[in-house]
Each structure stands twice: as structure tokens, then as C-alpha cells.
Nucleic acid binder design. Structure first.
Lengths: 232, 232
DNA sequence: ACTTGACTATTTGTATACTATTATAAAATC
DNA sequence: GATTTTATAATAGTATACAAATAGTCAAGT
């Protein structure tokens, strides 16, 4: 039976989504080289849709696309993490400010449900649920550009969760802050909610930043320059 | 003489830059349909680089790219303008906060020179110089993602200048605010500078918003529904 | 007369073939 | 033996050809 060309709507957007997910959860670690031909075979398509999807991911900051060279998964450096979360810390409160008056009880309940599930999940699921929690509360702001910007930043931020095990302090504190954020939303208290959200992002960012620096210090010390190379 | 294929590095990025400039200054007005083949002929290339450049512009919000249909220049609606400037009003102060300690006297002088030129320019040049002024003061913050985000927002915002003649009130006020911003930079006063910048963006936004609404009201009233169609 | 359906033309999306560029390795020269 | 040059292989970039999808038009039926 000659295989009918299925062409299952494997548009570039879908390929980008698949790759995005893998980069976010660390299945494709930083500095992984992505050959167009390799990906084309994997997704059963030609290199053209692959090129477009790589362009999309480049624009989002998930891969680097040097001219005439293979794409590589973007590195996870501390400076980027700080920058990304500084941007979240101003963008998300802006969205929340406009979202709160539009928030329905239904939507708050949904955020609460997500939060409850997050509290009984492991770190891998927690990262995704954390993102969902934030987006649920912000969506009613009805600002498509702002929302897609925030979603993009959350994707970038999420990558770092999977590199450092910070469950201990991180998630416990995060849970508390999410709960007070929900309370402020229930009360429809804009200024309180925005402040909580901003401080939540800044606090989480600080904790993660410390963990990243500690990890980098730890992986740099143990062996001296030469032998450290073999780690990779 | 058979024309040697020049292939003058007409990379997609360059085509995107050319189209971007035309969209920003209104040479390509909203709702203009962009046929890939037409553009390919104009830029003496194939449709492939064109496709990529359109993707870039779509991501920036300058064109819409509906599936299986021709690209169109993005509309200029008031809601988008408001959203874009809300985002600028939080992103630019963030950049400025980090830029101020790094600002050299040289860079401040450059911003001042740009401002002086802007004050003796017409509206068309003013828009571009306005953008340059902002970017000059923000660049030293050394945050590539944030800067490219802001640059993108400024491009989007700039489009609206060319649709409404608001020179009168707008530019006079803008000049005053730019000058006090420079003064705050000279004094290296972070909080004052950030506040001035934020209020400057918000005030400019409000003025433009009013002008846009007034214009829309004016172009909608004169004739009733049916005959108004012919205007377009 | 208006709606519905098929057919055609136009345009986007994808694949394959071809070109140019870059990196690697081998060879030659200093 | 080290360094520079050159050749070759691998990979990205581009063009052309082909397939799929959409919109517009004309005809037929109600």
C-alpha cells in the first residue's frame, strides 16, 4: 500500500510548538545543535517548514540562528534569566491591572484549581502549572500583544526550572504568594494584587538567581579548567 | 552581457527592514495587500526570502499573515495604540533605570543633539528622531531583549504619527518633557528620570489617543453609512 | 431574482534541485 | 614541527516547480 501523503496540516507553527515544548522542558538542552535536515526527517517534511519554525523560535529567544550555520538551543545564562524576569515583573502587573475588573468568579476558581493541582505536583508539572496559573489570571485583560509577550517570557523563564532543583524553598513560598494573589483577586483589589504579583515575580527571580549562581559556582570549582571540559 | 547574479546579500532581514520602513512611514498604508510574487519581483529575488521577511514583520505586529491568504499591512486602531504605549510606559522606565548609572556624558550629549534637531524638524523627521532620542538614552542598560522589545514597540507607535497631524500640541509638549528628561539624566537621578519618562509616554499617548478618536469620529460622521463606503 | 454549486484563476504552502558558504582536514612550505 | 594554504565535505540559503487552498465568476435550478 503506497502511503498516501497525509500532510496532516503539519504547518510550521505546529513544528515550532513541538520544538518549543522540548526546549522548555530541557529535553533539548542548551547548545544542542539543530540540523535542518535532521529535523525535516524527524517531522516527515522538507526543510522549508523547519526553517520557518526555527525562525519563530529564534524570535522568541529559544534558539540562536547564526547566519549560514546550524541553529543551536539558546544558552541558559543568569543574566538572561534576570532580564526576562525584570520584564515579567513590569508586564504582568500591567496586564493584571486591566484583568482584575474583568475577572469572573469562574476564572478565579479555575486559577485556584490550577494552584491546588500545582501544590500536589512534582517540579516538572509545577513549572507548566505555574505558567498556566499566571496566564489564567491575566487573560481577561484583553490585550493580545501584551499577553503574547508575557506568554513568551514565561516560556523563557520556565526553562530554568528544569535545570536547578529549587523545589524546597521555591515552591512553598510560591504557593503562599499565589494564594494571597487569589485572595486579592477575589476582593478585586487592583493595587494589592499588582503589588503581590510584582513582588512574587521578583522574589521568585531572586531565589532562582541565587540558585543558578550557586550551581554555576559549584560546577566550576570541583575540577580545574582542563578536566571540567569532559563534563559536557 | 548576461547579468551576473549579483545576490547582493539581499537577506530576508534586509527586505524586512525595507518593508518595515515603508510600513512605519505610511508609504504602505493599513490594509495594503502584499503579494509574495509582487514583492519577489520588486526585490529581484524569489518568494522564499520574501516569506521569511513577512514572517518577521508579522511577529513585530506590522503585518497580518492569515493562513493561505495574502499578507496585509496591519490596521491602525486606537486600541492597539493604547496597548502599545502602555507597554512602552512600563518597559522604557525599566530600561532607563538600568541605563542611567551607565550613561556617559558623551551619550547624553548625543541625545541632546538629537533633541535639538528634532525641534527644528517637520513631523515626518520628528517621528524618527523621537525614536532615536529614546533609544539613545536606553541603550546603555545592556539588556538586548528589553531593547529589541522597546525598539519594536517604538516602530509600532511611530506609525500613528503619520496618520494624524498633532504637531501643534504634541511636539511642543514633547520637547519640554525631553528636556527635563535630559536634565534628570545629567543629574543621574534615576527615580526622577523614570517618572518623567513614564509620564511623558503616558501623556503623549493620551494626546494621540484623543486625536485618533477625534479623527475617527470626524471621518465617520460626515456621510451616513452607505455613502461613506465610497471614501475608501 | 436570488441562492447554490461547480469550475477556474490566483495565490499561498511545500518539496526538490541547485548554489554558496563555512568548517575541517590534509598537504605543503617555512 | 608548526603554520598556512588549499581542497573537500557538510550544511545553510535560494530558486524553481508543483500541490493545495481560497476566492471569484458563471451557470443552473428553485
Amino acid at each position: 500500500m503506497t502511503r498516501k501523503i497525509i500532510r496532516d496540516g503539519q504547518t510550521a507553527e505546529e513544528i515550532a510548538a513541538a520544538l518549543r515544548a522540548e526546549v522548555i522542558v530541557g529535553k533539548l538542552p542548551p547548545d544542542t545543535v539543530l540540523f535542518q535536515e535532521e529535523l525535516a526527517e524527524r517531522f516527515q517534511t522538507s526543510r522549508m517548514p523547519i526553517r520557518e519554525s526555527l525562525k519563530i523560535l529564534e524570535r522568541e529567544g529559544l534558539v540562536l540562528l547564526p547566519a549560514n550555520r546550524s541553529a543551536v538551543v539558546a544558552p541558559l545564562d543568569v543574566e538572561s534569566f534576570v532580564e526576562i524576569n525584570e520584564m515579567r515583573a513590569v508586564a504582568e502587573p500591567l496586564a493584571l491591572r486591566h484583568a482584575i475588573p474583568e475577572l469572573t468568579n469562574r476564572q478565579i476558581a479555575q486559577a485556584e484549581a490550577i494552584q491546588e493541582e500545582a501544590e500536589r505536583s512534582d517540579i516538572a508539572r509545577f513549572a507548566a502549572l505555574n505558567r498556566a496559573f499566571h496566564m489564567t489570571l491575566l487573560e481577561p485583560c484583553a490585550r493580545p500583544r501584551l499577553l503574547s509577550h508575557i506568554a513568551s517570557l514565561n516560556d523563557l523563564s520556565q526553562r530554568y526550572f528544569h535545570t536547578v532543583a529549587v523545589e524546597l524553598e521555591y515552591s512553598a513560598r510560591s504557593h503562599d504568594e499565589h494564594r494571597s494573589l487569589i485572595a486579592a483577586c477575589v476582593a478585586r483589589d487592583r493595587v494589592a494584587a499588582c503589588m503581590i504579583l510584582q513582588e512574587h515575580i521578583e522574589a521568585a527571580s531572586q531565589l532562582m538567581e541565587d540558585a543558578l549562581r550557586a550551581k554555576r559556582a559549584a560546577t566550576l570549582r570541583p575540577r580545574t579548567g582542563d578536566t571540567a571540559r569532559f563534563a559536557r
